[in-house]
Design a protein around this nucleic acid. Structure first.
Length: 108
DNA sequence: GGATTGACGTGTC
DNA sequence: AGACACGCCAATC
């Protein structure tokens, strides 16, 4: 597949530093498809079939909510991994979201 | 090939 | 602040 869009999404997600998270909208905007934020979500859905594995647990929605946690093998894995990296997650949502938020536009 | 859905975002009530 | 509506595009039915 030459879905360059997806590859760009994967690349950005892989660039997310440890202990940091980003939002679909931020990635979409970084790729110039801010209005197509859903495509980012689809790309992440493909992440499970993509290689190497994508740290999709570091990608949340604009509210810092772990919307796609049920797509993980154990739905709790997402929160576990985030907490492992020092990110506080409560009620499926990132606590210090603003502090751990990583903007791809700043790196790319 | 039309209709439905979706790991979303933003605006409005 | 919580709920509802619209937009956007791709994949699946």
């Amino acid at each position: 597949m030459d879905a360059n869009f997806y590859e760009q999404v994967y690349e950005v997600v892989r660039l997310i530093p440890k202990g940091r998270v980003t939002s679909y909208g931020a990635i979409a905007k970084a790729l110039g498809a801010a209005k197509s934020s859903r495509m980012v979500g689809h790309a992440m859905a493909y992440a499970g079939s993509a290689s190497p594995k994508i740290p999709a647990h570091r990608v949340v929605n604009s509210s810092g909510l772990l919307t796609g946690r049920f797509h993980f093998s154990p739905p709790t894995l997402m929160q576990e991994l985030l907490e492992e990296e020092g990110i506080i997650v409560a009620n499926d949502k990132i606590k210090n979201f603003k502090k751990v938020f990583w903007d791809p536009l700043q790196e790319i």
